[in-house]
Design a protein around this nucleic acid. Structure first.
Lengths: 366, 366
DNA sequence: GGGCTTCCCGGTAACGGTTCCGGGAACCCT
DNA sequence: AGGGTTCCCGGAACCGTTACCGGGAAGCCC
């Protein structure tokens, strides 16, 4: 049998499928993609046979394989991802919703996640929600319509009802990063245990003699903000010393860091130690400290969360509550892959935090 | 006429299309997506009419529109992006190849680009090439097979032949970021004019009395590295003063920054001023400066490229050759959109750099 | 030599849309 | 009344794959 290519009457004529694999010398590189149909015609076999060869189906003779592969090679055929996705019902892509990629913490997470996903043949769709819960929900819905196989979520809010409902309507698996969602949503999670790091930091400050400590942190609609406040409260409650505390939750931004720091530090009896609950908050805090001429590690002690170049290289180096940020992304991706290809059930993975003392913490001035 | 749904014999039976829009109480949210076919059946019209209504085709009566939209609403129908993409031949997605998202410069660029693309309905696929030209090419090919509509490229090497060939074989438009490619490739570009910023910095240092200046910079296979070295050479050549220069091109990494700085600064006659050509290089340089006990702005003058929190908040603040990083990404995205939807021709957009003097630069010690 | 496997292969119906074509009905004009 | 538009709609091809089904040919066994 010899199939003679193209069937006759087409109601739908767009580009004409002439000279398949010929690179026109003018528009270099604009070579039309070959389709499976063309491979089949060239090899003079059925299109289904081509598919079978390419997908490693057992019902293929050695001769058939050789014939098809040679045609594939000659046409430089590459399967169309789109058609495959449509047919197979999976896109091999995952969506990542995050507040702001320019935050180095997030960037590290993305770095880790992307590498793992890439290794498994998945690619990463990225959308910034600019810390707006409505955008969270919007992006989730958008990814859903894009038919991503799964999602990685670093949500602006853990409690926004629209976001939660949107997630519950989601088809594929979702993994939230450093957030906790209601069990019923069936999302996996990778979280840090923020308690130990924060507790060690507060203990350290109290041991140094601090009795008035301020915590500037992000939104309590997110796990880290809540756990950090709780941990500080717990330490203060169990220590025999009488320690005054100032809590300034708000948003995870330099603006809030600056505003809160200014408010805290301009009062009459200011704290002798400040904990900035994030790298953006640290920036705002440092601006105010400089502006007020307060010397870190002498006039005031300072602790920050999440290591960045600034914290290590600042003079003096800034004590930091650390966690493995790249690992966070990596684990998130692994959790997702586990559900995607391993058929695992949703689960929560907990990663540690530790406190790294540095010269920014000293005994309070007398 | 009344089409009675599903046609009889199917050779291909997967999930059975029963109870379209019914949320099962147990598996909440696992509602099957409705297809256009189902909408058409419910509205008792042809599938093509549904398509026409949804795509705003003029050949639609008011009554038809109302009927279809009501069915769409009842089934909560959403068109399948995949099927649309396959049929229309566009995916509304663009691929972004970059060295390393954890570099704040890159993160800012991505931030700017993503926002613009999102506004135009496009989404962003992201891949890190880890500064490996082979990965550049690999990712470009991968995106190509993913059928992205266009690409944003921040390449590890401007000269790698495999990469160039791969790009030349690319179908859609490409925009390179802060790189220059051979004209024939037909890529658009957004670049910084690194000359003015660097020239101003070097002039400033010479004016302050420096006669021995080192430049630690990234790969000369990338535009910024080349232009920065050229600019410094040009200034030194045209100034009457006799200025010695030390050039240490390498890679855009903390390791190179550290290695080069150590090498430069441990010699007998070390330079009195160092220019670090990037934020990663700055980090490496600062480590060495601290390690050798050299005080910035007193024992040695320091200039860096690209503003980061560290440069502004360091004590003393570090003079910086600045550029608008978020804008870089934004312009890149606009250039791409111009070609994607506006049908514009490839072109190159040039953005400025400026020098911001700060106390890290002072007269050399006597 | 007939019946039963086994091995392969071609045909074809999907996946879920878009768009071209043709044609019926209503309207207009002379 | 007949011919030409205009307005809408249904039918069908097609985008590029996948996977099921059926069947021909060859091999095996008794």
């Amino acid at each position: 049998m010899t199939r003679s290519g193209s069937n006759g009457g087409s109601a739908d004529h767009r580009r004409t499928p002439v000279d398949a694999a010929a690179t026109s010398p003018v528009t270099m590189g604009a070579r039309r993609r070959a389709s499976m149909r063309e491979v089949a015609d060239l090899a003079d076999v059925a299109i289904s046979s081509v598919s079978r060869v390419l997908s490693g189906h057992p019902d293929v003779s050695a001769q058939m394989r050789e014939r098809v592969l040679s045609a594939v090679h000659r046409l430089e055929y590459e399967p169309d991802f789109l058609a495959q996705s449509l047919r197979r019902g999976q896109t091999l892509s995952v969506g990542f919703v995050l507040a702001d990629i320019s935050n180095p913490l997030m960037a590290d997470i993305v770095l880790g996640a992307e590498a793992v996903l890439r290794g498994a043949g998945y690619s990463l769709l990225l959308m910034n929600s600019e810390n707006d819960p409505r955008m969270d929900a919007q992006h989730v819905r958008f990814f859903q319509s894009r038919r991503v196989d799964g999602m990685l979520l670093s949500l602006a809010s853990e409690t926004d009802p629209t976001t939660l409902e949107t997630i519950s309507l989601t088809e594929g698996p979702a993994v939230v990063i450093d957030r906790r969602l209601p069990e019923e949503l069936g999302a996996s999670a990778v979280v840090n245990d923020h308690g130990p790091g924060m507790e060690a930091a507060v203990e350290h400050l109290i041991d140094l003699g601090h009795r008035r400590i301020a915590l500037i942190t992000g939104s309590t609609a997110q796990l880290p903000g809540r756990e950090r406040m709780d941990a500080m409260r717990a330490v203060v409650a169990r220590r025999p010393e009488r320690v005054e505390t100032i809590y300034r939750p708000g948003s995870f931004s330099t603006e809030h860091g600056e505003g809160a720091a200014r408010e805290i530090l301009s009062g009459p009896d200011r704290p002798t130690a400040v904990i900035a609950g994030g790298n953006q908050l640290l920036i705002g805090t440092l601006k105010v400290l400089r502006e007020q001429g307060l010397r870190v590690g002498r006039d005031i002690s300072l602790v920050t969360c999440d290591e960045v170049p600034l914290s290590e290289l600042y003079e003096p180096p800034i004590a930091t509550i650390q966690r493995e940020t790249v690992g966070l992304g990596r684990v998130a991706a692994e959790l997702l892959l586990g559900r995607l290809v391993g058929g695992e059930a949703p689960r929560t993975e907990v990663l540690p935090t530790t406190f790294l003392p540095r010269p920014s913490c000293a005994s309070p001035p007398a």
